[in-house]
Nucleic acid binder design. Structure first.
Lengths: 221, 221
DNA sequence: ACTTTTTATTACCCATGGGTAATATACGGA
DNA sequence: TCCGTATATTACCCATGGGTAATAAAAAGT
């Protein structure tokens, strides 16, 4: 599969394909690791078992990562990437503060219902190297800053009624982060249902004027 | 100190005072342990350091507890006791669903700002023995049940507008539980300020008719 | 075919920290 | 004063699991 035109003389292609294969294996490690870390908790999970699930042995993992804590960090980074993308998308679209906040709540809720998303809130910063821990802390501050920013924007543009932006952001982000602790993919609630309900529930108290139409309808369902 | 009337012939007093001294030491262990577990995380915290903080040595701890996981469980139990009391108090007073919910939110928020309260959400059930883990899981279900119960009550009695009680309870409890993750006693926010703001913020979206008077005033502060 | 690089394995090291046995010390009761 | 119990200490055991040689097997390059 993935046959190349034999006429292509580029000597870089084999090199590239090798690198891709390596990256795929690297990511497979992360997927196995994040699942196990969430299942058992970071400290109870062993690299032996991560390797076992991939049909390899522990030392093979060290071809891709420097140690257990780096695997943890990279799992976290996968989730963080999704959040960064999501925020970049919202900022690109623009709109009133309340609108952006709603989009953020909805998208963030769905990320929390994934393994890499949950890793953002279920992993402990203290398990990382000091260097990586600082990266994580900075990212957490940045997310909080985004929530708070949308709220203050909304207050300025009139879409959100005056309130303590800091505590409002804490309340909303708390609700969302908690999803990472209770959501189970084999449970009765779908990520879609959760994100929709949360988008309404967490912002309805903030809206300057009660939303009308479809939002109301959904609420009284 | 604590001199007893020498005329008192009761042979039980010395016994009682000994038992009290023992209980006090037991609790001192729990206070030191919960603080350390929260500071460092359960797995990084060592019994040696718990003991060191109490000016004793590790084996002395085994006079009061069967093992590390039992200490963890007892820390959790201390927090749970506070929550149980708080709910019992609210149920005793009675009132509309929304009123009870507001009381619960406020009091629960304040508990979350204590060490034993935070232990309710920052400790991992998987670190406990299967027997104790089941006790914890049952208690968690019970708290969720209480939140959900107040909401459905409120919907019945008209104080809360119709909504999905299950998800509303998740959203509120999530916000509150998250306090245990970010609150720092040396931070700028007082437990009182947090609990008041959260009581408003988390219930304002649920109220059938917008609250008037002091609540409004506080919101626009 | 041969050499080199990458990737994996087997076998091991060893720091950590929960838990225990043997023993000493403080203390209340007679 | 002596005894028994509760409480502490010192010294140790040992399972666990992250991490590291030394080495083999596979793949790529020439």
């Amino acid at each position: 599969m993935d046959m190349l035109p034999p006429t292509d003389p580029s000597p870089w292609l084999p090199f590239e394909s090798r690198r891709r294969a390596r990256d795929e294996k690297r990511e497979a490690v992360l997927r196995a690791a994040v699942a196990l870390f969430l299942e058992q908790g970071y400290h109870r999970a062993t690299l032996n078992e991560v390797a076992e699930r991939l049909n390899i042995t522990k030392p093979a993992l060290y071809n891709y990562f420097r140690g257990k804590d780096e695997i943890l960090f990279e799992c976290w980074a996968m989730g963080q990437e999704r959040v960064d993308d999501l925020i970049a998308g919202i900022d690109a679209e623009g709109g009133a503060g309340l609108v952006k906040l709603r989009k953020l709540v909805r998208a963030y809720a769905e990320v929390m219902a994934t393994d890499f998303g949950a890793s953002l809130v279920r992993f402990d910063v203290r398990d990382l190297s000091e260097k990586n821990a600082e990266v994580v802390r900075a990212a957490k501050r940045s997310i909080d800053h985004t929530f708070r920013g949308y709220i203050t924007e909304g207050i300025s543009d009139g879409s959100i009624k005056p309130c303590d932006a800091k505590l409002a952001a804490f309340a909303i982000a708390g609700s969302l982060n908690w999803i990472g602790h209770w959501y189970r993919s084999d449970g009765p609630l779908s990520p879609k249902a959760i994100s929709e309900e949360f988008a309404d529930r967490l912002t309805e108290g903030l809206a300057r004027r009660p939303a009308a139409g479809k939002t109301r309808a959904r609420l009284s369902r």
